[in-house]
């Protein structure tokens, strides 16, 4: 089967989760990637070095170098007949693009794919991860977004040779949404989705009035910072750090939750974490039940004590 992976766009830059998209695509066959949007040449060069990428399509026309989901969807729609699988990572970029492209091809997308079996049946979580639903692969063309954390790319070493880059210089202009600006989030630490360690804070941080405690522990462990919805709502953390069903899904080696109760919507985002530690003053917090290690303690005394070590 032939796979087209559309490279994500992260505030106009290359999305490092592209390798996870390649890892997922290789379950089906040859992977061609499409680089468009701002810095498309840089994106193409990076993707061409990923082992397993057969060809890179590089969109160079100005109408495709600005962020425009409508213009890009028009191009992908034109490429669709040449591929069996059209794929993107489940990011805000992929979730915006793939359903639009699927509808143009009179098809329904399958989003948030969590596993691809040998026989190509697909599994995705539903009901906030309480249930896994398995589907047959529909007839091509198939439109997918894949959960990056479920497709680790550690088997992909960097290529010694570079994949062929083919330029597409045609214009695609819908005159619909017009990009104005990107504003990077206040987060200066690693992205929680790709981080090996994530320290997250919740409503329990309110008494401190800031996320300082979470950030200090994160820095001590070289970790990314994450947050519950409540912490985001309280203005303690930025929206893009929200972990959970309607935030980001993460799969670090270590996840430490500080003052997070463990609502099902939050747990949905950490199910794939390899080790979960919960520090909470409430011994009955649901997150204690989901954790590998639970410490019932006040974070405002426990975390400073840990930092002293």
């Amino acid at each position: 089967m032939k796979v087209l992976l559309v490279i994500g766009d992260r505030l106009g830059e290359y999305d490092p989760l592209t390798v996870n998209g390649v890892a997922a695509g290789l379950h089906f066959g040859d992977v061609t990637v499409l680089a468009a949007g701002p810095n498309s040449q840089k994106k193409a060069d990076k993707a061409a070095q990923i082992n397993g990428v057969k060809e890179v399509l590089l969109a160079t026309h100005p109408t495709l170098q600005k962020p425009s989901v409508e213009n890009l969807a028009m191009l992908v729609n034109e490429l669709t007949p040449s591929f069996d699988i059209i794929l993107a990572v489940t990011s805000t970029f992929g979730s915006d693009l793939i359903p639009r492209v699927a509808a143009l091809a009179n098809s329904s997308p399958i989003t948030g794919v969590w596993a691809i079996a040998k026989d190509h049946t697909l599994t995705r979580p539903i009901n906030a991860g309480a249930v896994l639903a398995q589907l047959n692969l529909p007839k091509p063309p198939v439109f997918l977004t894949i959960r990056p954390t479920a497709f680790p790319a550690n088997f992909i070493s960097n290529n010694t040779r570079k994949a062929k880059i083919t330029v597409i210089d045609k214009s695609y202009e819908c005159n619909l949404s017009q990009h104005k600006t990107y504003t990077p989030s206040a987060n200066v630490r690693p992205d929680p989705v790709s981080a090996k360690i994530v320290v997250a804070g919740g409503g329990g941080l309110q008494a401190g009035g800031s996320f300082e405690l979470v950030e200090k522990l994160a820095d001590r462990l070289n970790a990314a910072v994450g947050a519950s919805r409540t912490a985001v709502d309280m203005g303690l953390a930025s929206n893009d750090l929200q972990i959970g069903q309607t935030g980001r899904c993460i799969a670090p080696d270590l996840y430490i939750a500080l003052g997070i109760s463990g609502a099902i919507q939050h747990l949905a985002g950490i199910k794939d974490a390899r080790m979960i530690v919960s520090i909470n003053s409430d011994p009955n917090a649901p997150l204690h039940g989901a954790a590998d290690f639970a410490l019932t303690a006040d974070i405002f005394s426990a975390v400073p004590e840990l930092l002293k070590k």
Partner: peptide, 10 residues
């Protein structure tokens, strides 16, 4: 709300 920050568009 996009990954890594926010985007403004018309």
């Amino acid at each position: 709300e996009v990954d890594g920050g926010t985007q403004e568009l018309t």
